Amino acid sequence: SKDAAQYVYDEAQKGVTQVTVNGVTFKFDNWQKLLKYAQKLLN
C-alpha cells in the first residue's frame, strides 16, 4: 500500500537499514538501498 511505502520511505530517511511492515521485516546492507526500495514502492 502507499501508506506502507511512505512509512518505509520515512524510515529510510532516518538512516535505518531495516524496517518492519505488516509483520514483515526487510533488511538492507545500507539505508540507501532501503531508500531505493521505498522509492520503487512509491512509484
Rank of each mutant, 00 (worst) to 15 (best):
F26W: 08
K33I: 08
N22F: 15
K33V: 06
V19A: 05
K2P: 05
V19R: 04
N43F: 10
V24S: 03
K40G: 02
D3M: 10
Y9L: 12
L34E: 00
D10L: 13
V19F: 06
N30Q: 09
L41I: 05
Q18T: 05
W31D: 00
Q13S: 08
G15Y: 14
A5L: 12
V24Q: 07
L35G: 00
V8R: 04
L42T: 01
V16Q: 04
S1A: 09
L41E: 00
T17V: 11
L34W: 03
Y7P: 15
L42E: 00
L42P: 00
K33T: 07
D10K: 05
N30D: 08
G15L: 14
D29T: 11
Q32K: 07
E11A: 04
Q6A: 05
K33C: 13
L34F: 04
V8L: 11
D10C: 15
S1F: 12
S1G: 11
K36Q: 06
G23Y: 14
Y37Q: 03
V16A: 07
N43D: 04
D10I: 15
E11Q: 12
N43E: 06
D10G: 10
F28H: 02
F28M: 06
L41R: 01
A12Q: 05
K36W: 10
Q6G: 08
D10F: 13
V8M: 05
F28K: 02
K2H: 07
F26C: 14
S1P: 13
K14L: 10
Y9I: 11
D10T: 11
K14S: 09
Y7N: 12
L35K: 01
K14D: 12
K27E: 02
N22R: 11
Y7G: 14
A4M: 04
V16C: 15
Q13V: 11
L34A: 01
L42A: 01
V16K: 04
F28Q: 01
A5S: 06
K36N: 05
L41M: 02
Y7A: 14
K2M: 11
N30K: 06
G23R: 10
L41A: 01
N22P: 11
F26K: 02
L42K: 01
L34M: 02
L41H: 01
W31G: 00
F26P: 02
K27S: 14
S1Q: 08
Q13M: 10
Q6D: 14
L34Q: 00
N30E: 05
Q6R: 08
Q39K: 04
V24D: 01
V24F: 11
V8Y: 12
W31M: 05
V21E: 11
E11F: 14
Q18L: 13
K40P: 00
K27N: 13
K40V: 02
N30I: 15
Y7W: 13
A38M: 13
Q18D: 03
V19P: 05
K2T: 12
K14Q: 08
V8S: 07
L41N: 00
L35R: 02
Q13R: 08
A4D: 14
K2V: 14
N22I: 15
Q32A: 08
V19Q: 07
V16I: 05
Y9H: 10
V19D: 02
T25Q: 04
Y9S: 12
D3T: 03
K2G: 10
G15N: 10
D10R: 01
N30L: 08
Q32R: 07
Q13A: 10
D10Y: 11
K14Y: 05
A12E: 06
V16L: 09
V24Y: 11
V21T: 11
D3A: 02
L42C: 14
L34R: 00
K33L: 07
K2Y: 04
Y37D: 01
Q13L: 12
D29L: 15
